[in-house]
Write a protein that binds this DNA or RNA. Structure first.
Lengths: 136, 136
DNA sequence: CTGCCACTTCAAGCCGACTTGAGGTCAAGA
DNA sequence: TCTTGACCTCAAGTCGGCTTGAAGTGGCAG
């Protein structure tokens, strides 16, 4: 399939696909003239990439995880990543609930809403002087 | 308290605090000479900011949500944000589980692991030609 | 009173992930 | 054959969120 087909089916712009190829995240299987040709399984790969992106991984990290020989990521690193992710998930869950609350709350400002402040305090639990995840 | 105290207690660098002030996210209550002074409640505010950041909001969005008078964000927008967040949470959850699996999987490459591929397919469910969240 | 040095300002730089623009190529339809 | 226009390359630009560097200032220990 041509790049435009991949773009259409994946929803990812051709420019991004070219960029991903340059970064070694995907490979084109050949050319017709100038035009790249892709195997259909690139779609699965793109799904994985998008998933990784959504989880907050950098393209380099994703590339490493997907490499066939793989720099053999150590178990510990994977677990660490998973834990990091889990922390983020909890924060996002709190935020999601906070938003839901805000949607039906009549307080003049969310900072003045006791429920919101309770949510906030919950969020800060176990972060005494570490605050929420930075860098990552 | 001085900026260095805030930095120490929050774990957020002074440069970032200055930047946040410039962006209208926090306010200093005065100066001692050149040096900014902050009210201790800035810590709570910083917690909220970090929470918002972790949830994927831009600084501008956070500022808007926190403004006392507030551009009165409409209910619908809040719900939309919450839903968006929820989608991201689900993706991250999948990724987290995938990582946990990978940590104890013996397949030469994750792409070749049937479990991982099953996880991936689950992730792509309901995204036929929309792929995972872009722009966000 | 003096000197230190943690603070200040402002502009510029950096990173990650793309996007955009100019200028070039070539497979395919009329 | 000729034209068309979707693709190509490469460099530069954009956006968000900071960080860094140079040059200045002023509270406070000695």
């Amino acid at each position: 399939m041509e790049i435009s087909d991949v773009a259409k089916q994946s929803g990812i712009p051709a420019s991004t696909l070219r960029y991903y190829e340059e970064r070694g995240l995907i490979r084109s299987t050949g050319r017709r003239g100038l035009r790249r040709l892709f195997d259909t399984d690139v779609l699965e790969r793109l799904g994985l990439i998008s998933l990784g992106r959504a989880a907050g991984f950098k393209l380099d990290e994703i590339a490493a995880m997907m490499s066939p020989d793989g720099p053999r990521i150590e178990r510990a690193a994977l677990i660490a990543k998973a834990d990091e992710l889990d922390k983020k998930i909890r924060q996002m869950t709190i935020m999601r609930d906070g938003l839901h609350h805000a949607a039906k709350c009549r307080a003049p400002s969310h900072m003045e809403c006791p429920t919101f402040r309770r949510i906030l305090r919950a969020a800060m639990k176990g972060n005494p002087g570490g605050m929420i995840a930075r860098k990552g």
